[in-house]
Simulated scan of single mutants.
Amino acid sequence: MLRRTGIPLLALAVFAGPALAGCGGGEPEESAADLLSRAKTTLDDASSAHFVLDSEGAPNSGTLLVGGEGDIARPASFEGTLNVRALGSTLDLEVVSVDGTVYAQLPFASGFSVVDPAQFGFGDPGALLDPDTGISQLLAEAENAELGEERRVDGDVVREVTAELPGDLVEQILASQDPSQAVQARFSIATETGELRRAELTGPFFTAEDDATYTVELSDFGADVEITAPPTG
């Protein structure tokens, strides 16, 4: 009996071995370029998103965008608060942007005024979701992309991707005092949804000689957001 059962057991081991080895391989890992491409598609498909902007390394002189928080909605709207450093102090400006017109409630003013955002050190925040001029362009133009660590952000698993960004592109979206210098980027992308959750950018944002860091965090993709132009007076 022992010798008879040994033959089928041996045959089972021989034929099952390759199948078991094949099952253990799993799916191939998504490349850095594929992950960036999926994050761009996800962001371009989102009708809205909430964003938080922070910075490190800003000097005390000049007029600079150092932070902010608000909602951006497609096709070209923004509503929130932007933190601008001017004359050594930080101003919290209530800002609304609709279809290319930017409104801000300036200090000591009772209502909103139409403004040129460049005078406060930033571009049109309503364009941040535009596929041709907004945040997703950073994903499309990333160079030398490499996969980084995997971690959790607010309970979601994200994969980091490090890359270099053209300085002139970053200047159009955020700022740069030397567009000829590349900007170092670290993206955190949710592996399940493809959502860009964080972009940490380091480059010559405030002075050409010194690097500083902008961090953009995105959440609430596709939330119901309604933004209208405020009355001016």
Rank of each mutant, 00 (worst) to 15 (best):
I7R: 09
P8W: 06
L12E: 10
L12G: 13
A13C: 15
A13D: 10
A13K: 00
A21L: 11
A21T: 00
G24T: 02
G26V: 11
E30C: 01
S31W: 02
A33C: 07
A33H: 08
D34C: 04
S37L: 13
R38G: 04
R38Q: 07
T41C: 05
T42F: 00
D44Y: 02
D44I: 05
D45Y: 00
D45A: 14
A46Q: 02
H50N: 10
L53E: 03
S55R: 01
T63R: 14
L64C: 00
L65S: 09
G67I: 03
G68F: 04
E69M: 03
R74T: 13
S77I: 00
F78G: 06
T81W: 03
L82A: 09
N83T: 14
R85K: 13
A86V: 02
L87T: 11
G88Q: 03
S89W: 06
S89M: 15
L91D: 10
L91M: 12
D92N: 13
V95I: 15
V95G: 10
D99H: 05
G100R: 10
P107C: 11
A109H: 11
A109N: 13
V114R: 02
D116Q: 14
P117F: 13
P117V: 12
F120C: 12
G121Q: 07
G121A: 10
G121F: 08
G123D: 14
G123I: 12
D124E: 12
G126H: 07
L128F: 08
D130H: 04
D132T: 04
T133Q: 14
S136V: 11
Q137P: 11
Q137C: 14
L138T: 10
L139V: 06
E141F: 08
E143L: 13
A145R: 03
A145H: 06
